Computed example of a mutant assay.
Amino acid sequence: MLGLSPQLAALVFLVLITPICAWVVFTDLKFMKIRNKAVMALLVVFALAGPLLLPLDVYAWRWSHAIVVFLVGFILNQIAHFGAGDAKFAAAAAPYFAHDAFHVELSMLLLCAFLLAAFTAHRIMRAIPAVVNATPDWVSWKRKDFPMGLALVGTLWAYLLIVALS
């Protein structure tokens, strides 16, 4: 199975990461935290499945994405109050993205769209008493900051879905 088509590789990655993504969304909404175990699980899936799904040169180069995104996330955490869990999740998700111009533009477009949509949806949902009463212990309803994991997960998941369907 060395080096499947990009569409099939994306589909397999999508199936493998979906439970992790659901876990990240839940914990970010409930606790405003993205667990290190979830970040490690995302990395482990790429580490184990990547060499079976991608050509080895592509697989190896994609690890550089994680390093670059981690460094950018670390800087944003220090100067712009970007969450540490968000930075780690973004770094762990980075190897799943291709780096050519089309895929970079697609990724940025998706991130912008999911930032706006997730922020708006979160603010609307927390304004609905029935929703808040059904989940009264969710920290994200009470804090000013936003559970960025929603947008990051949405971006990763939608990207892989688009590649799988292309």
Rank of each mutant, 00 (worst) to 15 (best):
10 A>L: 01
93 A>W: 06
148 M>Y: 14
5 S>T: 13
38 A>N: 13
61 W>G: 11
109 L>R: 05
7 Q>E: 15
105 E>D: 02
66 A>C: 12
69 V>L: 00
11 L>H: 08
17 I>P: 02
139 V>W: 09
130 A>Q: 11
84 A>M: 15
27 T>I: 08
141 W>T: 07
108 M>V: 07
148 M>G: 03
62 R>H: 12
134 A>F: 05
60 A>R: 14
82 F>R: 06
142 K>A: 08
25 V>Q: 02
138 W>N: 08
47 A>K: 10
116 L>N: 00
66 A>S: 15
159 Y>H: 03
145 D>S: 14
160 L>R: 07
143 R>F: 07
90 A>D: 04
156 L>C: 05
102 F>E: 04
11 L>Q: 11
12 V>P: 00
14 L>I: 00
36 N>R: 09
152 L>S: 10
129 P>K: 09
107 S>W: 00
155 T>M: 12
35 R>W: 12
77 N>Q: 15
119 F>I: 07
112 C>Q: 02
83 G>F: 11
64 S>N: 11
134 A>W: 09
142 K>R: 10
61 W>L: 09
67 I>Y: 04
37 K>A: 15
45 V>W: 05
22 A>K: 11
108 M>W: 02
61 W>S: 08
50 G>F: 05
116 L>H: 01
48 L>A: 15
139 V>C: 09
136 P>K: 09
118 A>R: 01
63 W>C: 10
16 L>Y: 06
87 A>D: 04
8 L>M: 09
115 L>H: 01
46 F>A: 08
152 L>C: 10
117 A>K: 00
97 F>G: 04
120 T>Y: 11
27 T>P: 04
49 A>W: 07
48 L>I: 15
36 N>V: 06
64 S>M: 11
65 H>F: 06
75 I>Q: 05
112 C>R: 01
131 V>F: 09
94 A>M: 05
120 T>F: 14
69 V>S: 01
46 F>W: 13
5 S>N: 09
38 A>D: 12
45 V>D: 07
128 I>K: 08
137 D>E: 14
12 V>G: 00
118 A>M: 11
